[in-house]
Design a binder for these strands. Sequence first.
DNA 1: ATAGGGTTAG
Length: 439
Amino acid sequence: MSLPHQLAAGELLTALRGASCASSALRLYSLLRIRLPPSDPSSFAGRAAAFALKPLSSAGSLPLLSHFHAHLIRSNLLAYPQVASSLLRSYSLLSPAAAHHLFDQIPPATCNLFVVNVMLSSLCRSSDLASARLFFNDIPDKDIVSWSTMLACYFSNKSVADGLAFFRTMTFTTTLAPDYVMLVTVLTGCASAGLLQPFCRSIHGYIVRRQAVSMHLGTSLIDCYAKVGRLDYASRVFVRVPSRNVMHWTAMICGMAMHLHYDEAIQLFEEMRRQGVRPNEMTFTAVLSVCGHAGLVEQGREFFKLMVEEYDLEPTVHHYGCMVDIFAKAGQLEDAYDVIKTMRVEPNIIIWTSLLAACKRLKNFDIAMEVLDEVLAMEISDENGGLYTLISDLYVMAGRWDDVLKVRRLMEEHNVRKNRWSRSVRAGKPPGLIDPAVS
DNA sequence: ATAGGGTTAG
């Protein structure tokens, strides 16, 4: 390979790595392929394929991905585990079934731990906990990534106690040491189970002993302590973080808000800005929700304006939701409804619930009746089953008996009562035989 | 060149 040739290929590869959309990635990829000699001693083609697959999966087109897949087979690039795992990951984001199918066809020589871990994370996202666990059990040389993928799967399935027990199993039965990603995962699990405050402390102790406190762990510790009700510990971690970034500030502001310290939350926000830390969209979600809870309508308006005009952030459905809630809580139903009518994103269940709850409280049925058909046409998940009760109450109060019956039927179809019951059973499950003193 | 994690409105 001549030198200029190689340089050009290297530059293309760098550009490909940073490519953000599928079409530019594919263009760069084919340019690069044309310049490569058949021998390709630096396996540029393989690297390029791995890079190109990332923007390809975010394009969300399965036919496009299959097309590239066919190309990879023709050019024998799938033999590289790096390419195979990238392709598998791309498939798993678009079609778990296709990912599973591909995995079965990967030859043993290519199927290294990277590939297997991608398959595990695909199962964790798309399948049930038990199937993921069976797959995990069959992995021969599980590494820290396999364990933390599985651990996160427990937590995302709300099996917190089982997850923490699983974590203990790792510490007892393997020589693997938890790295910071796994510790973040564990702390997230602790945060979702308020009863496990001692466990959160013991993880903190472990982190301090290992001198593993990193920027990420600081955020997770603040969040975890706040969620388990120890705002004092959260603050202590917060003040000790050497260089506080947006995430630390936001986690602390959320913690303050969670514990009803609205003034402190807003003061923290102002202090953060004074120190030159740029708030992000989550920071604004936090302060706007504070305004809703504290009844600060004007303040909320100002924050919203600040976000758009000074920080140039595009409001998301969360921010609009906060604005609806601010107006709804303050009894300004027309303003709340105006936000919904004029916002640039589709309203979701949370937003409607916020508006409808205020309609019920204020016995304002005009707006409620205007929007209910639209709300009922939406996909209401079991988790939001309570919305049916709210809607039914509104119809009762408005004397619309036919509609009451209609909603009752919907509730039966969706098993609203049954699901509530099973949720409470799950929530009431003992947090498990976890001894915080160990690990 | 490839794998796992983090704060978000009712």
